[in-house]
Design a protein around this nucleic acid. Structure first.
Length: 583
RNA sequence: GCGCCCGUAGCUCAGUUGGAUAGAGCAGCGGUCUUCUAAACCGCAGGUCACAGGUUCGAGUCCUGUCGGGCGUGCCA
């Protein structure tokens, strides 16, 4: 049950009964000061203004129409017309007892689950995965897990760049290598480092005019379906995808081969897209290219020019706008999507505004289909410049992960040198990868993000190691007591303030998850978990568990510990981060 | 030129549809291990929310302008 949502519903009803204008919301917010209770309703001021009456009087009438005695302590009117709400210990205790036996920790499945397509990661297969793919992959993975946990039907779509001019270059270069070396030893060796392979091909392309021509011919051959060229393309694509899988596995994201649905899949449909736009009467030829001009982009270009969405180049080639339009139709009609999320960097904002606009205008997207760009900022280095190697090169994802694990290993070795190395390696992998992910997810995705090893691997603050430690610390209580978690059954009784505060936090998981799903903001979950850990630490310091005065208190506190552990593990799990039973 | 985003503590960042005295973490200072993991906890200090107007019961949040920064702005994705 969504506590905040329940309060919103019930107080909004009371507000309506008290004579507030239709649509007046209770405007429930978490209170930022303990003396104001756990929640506060801010809606009376706005409604009273519309009615031209005293807000406190309206609040009084609202209370007359409201019975929250099952959930809350007697309500209080404060300040200009706030209603302060303190959740009752009885309700919390009862609620948490219910949650204790629920695998979904109180998160209700929606009445009408949606089919949500999440488009993320989408590396260009011409190159090896690098840090530029990290945020999309991590954020998308977290959103997928959250939506899935809630009970929506989630369809992952890895819209890889497996088609386009860069492949001509690569195929030409590969053919060259095979010519000089029919056994393919050199080609194989060079393919071990895709980034290098691409770099060499590109170098050759730029320097050698004849080679460039060959490369362009390969593109034409590829697009016209020449079998030999297609074979080469398939081989290259396969190697590249295998490399991606390796990275995904290491990173621990859900993406699988079956989720790959790349640009090449839409090839046959691109001419249809253009023709359908023409049939819809919105296609215009401009400077030899086929374009759609949206009203809202008139005069928005350089020198007040109209900005087109180009769907076919003057040479007849198609662009990613065309593919994205085809993708919308495919996802709506074939995948039956209710909502499509595009997890890409914020620089593509205008592109998606245009594509969504054209899709609506052309009738490709029905009105109820939710099309959302989920933008994120850039990854920056310490110098606040785009994150690069010292020499200015691109940082490969595999190298980044290796360094994360190595740094975590050094850290673990420093803390627990007596643990054997193999085990330290295992811990380091979980802590290191978790740190990279959590550092990214804990920040509001919209802002650019300054990458810092020291910060993400810090043991203090809102970091993965801290959260993982908090989890291990809770679990240690059960180990210490030499008891199984299943033995922690009984009644939850909240007496100490630290217990109540912890209980309130525990009861706030559903509303937090809901907000993450609606806003596509994983950092809300990170903040929540960090606050939960803080509430637990305070409880842990203030309330002896195993040495509690009475058996009933001991049982109750053990249940709070268990719920805390499960909530942290589940929450981190929804972020794609593993936990350790012992650190 | 135009469009979008941003400017919050020394640093890195939160801040929900406008709500009460703007919050964390790092760094700094000071306390806590014979007591459930000190990879921790507690406390102190740190702010003209870039600037100037405006809207209103109330503005970090909305509007206008200025300054500063990032990104985008027709045949790459």
């Amino acid at each position: 049950m969504n506590l905040k949502g329940e309060l919103e519903t019930r107080i909004s009803e009371a507000l309506a009964e008290a004579g507030a204008p239709p649509g007046s919301g209770a405007l429930i917010a978490r209170s930022n000061k303990p003396q104001f209770g756990h929640y506060q309703a801010n809606g009376c001021m706005a409604a009273a203004k519309a009615l031209k009456i005293n807000p406190r009087e309206l609040a009084r009438k609202v209370l007359d129409n409201l019975d929250l005695s099952d959930i809350a302590e007697p309500l209080e009117i404060a300040g200009p017309g706030f209603i302060n709400i303190r959740i009752s210990r009885q309700w919390l205790a009862q609620r948490l007892t219910e949650v204790e036996s629920d695998p979904k920790l109180g998160i209700a499945t929606p009445e009408t689950p949606q089919t949500v397509v999440v488009d993320y990661s989408a590396p260009n297969l011409a190159k090896e995965m690098h840090v530029g793919h990290l945020r999309s992959t991590i954020i998308g993975d977290a959103l997928v897990r959250v939506l899935d946990f809630i009970g929506h039907k989630v369809i992952r779509q890895n819209h890889v760049g497996d088609w386009g001019t860069q492949f001509g270059m690569l195929i030409a270069y590969m053919k060259d290598l095979l010519q000089d070396d029919p056994e393919g030893f050199q080609a194989e060796a060079e393919l071990g480092d895709l980034e290098e392979f691409y770099r060499k091909a590109k170098q050759r392309f730029d320097a050698d005019e004849a080679f460039a021509d060959t490369a362009r011919e390969e593109v034409v051959r590829l697009q016209s379906g020449d079998p030999a060229t297609l074979d080469a393309w398939r081989g290259f694509r396969e190697i590249s995808l295998r490399h991606c899988s390796d990275v995904y596995r290491r990173l621990g994201v859900l993406l699988e081969d079956g989720d790959v649905y790349g640009e090449s899949e839409f090839n046959d449909d691109l001419s249809n897209v253009v023709e359908d736009l023409r049939a819809a009467g919105i296609l215009e030829e401009s400077r030899g290219a086929q374009c759609v001009f949206l009203d809202e982009f008139r005069g928005k270009g350089e020198d007040d020019a109209d900005v087109p969405l180009i769907v076919q180049k003057s040479d007849g080639g198609y662009l990613y706008a065309t593919t994205d339009l085809a993708g919308i139709r495919y996802r709506q009609d074939q995948l039956r999507a209710d909502r499509i999320l595009y997890v890409t960097d914020s620089r593509q904002g205008m592109h998606f505004t245009q594509v969504f606009g054209v899709a609506r205008l052309a009738g490709f997207a029905r009105g109820e289909l939710m099309l959302e760009h989920v933008p994120f900022g850039m990854m920056l280095g310490k110098d606040h410049r785009p994150f690069k190697t010292r020499t200015g090169g691109t940082i490969k994802l595999t190298d980044l992960l290796t360094e994360a694990e190595q740094r975590a290993f050094d850290l673990v070795s420093g803390k627990t040198p007596d643990v054997d190395e193999a085990r330290r390696r295992e811990i380091a992998a979980i802590v290191g990868i978790g740190a990279v992910k959590y550092a990214d997810l804990s920040q509001n995705r919209g802002s650019d993000y300054v990458f810092s090893w020291d910060k993400m691997l810090s043991l203090d603050g809102n970091t993965a190691p801290y959260m993982q430690y908090a989890y291990a610390r809770v679990k240690s209580i059960f180990r210490k007591a030499d008891m199984d978690e299943s033995q922690a059954v009984g009644e939850i009784v909240l007496t100490e303030a630290a217990e109540t505060n912890l209980a309130v936090k525990l009861a706030q998981l559903p509303e937090t998850i809901q907000a993450v799903a609606v806003e596509c903001l994983p950092n809300l979950l990170c903040s929540y978990l960090f606050e939960l850990a803080g509430a637990f630490m305070t409880f842990y310091e203030a309330c002896p568990v195993l040495k509690a005065d009475a058996p009933a208190a001991r049982t109750s506190r053990l249940m709070l510990c268990l719920l805390t552990a499960r909530t942290i593990k589940t929450g981190l799990g929804m972020l794609g981060i593993d936990t350790l039973e012992q650190m």
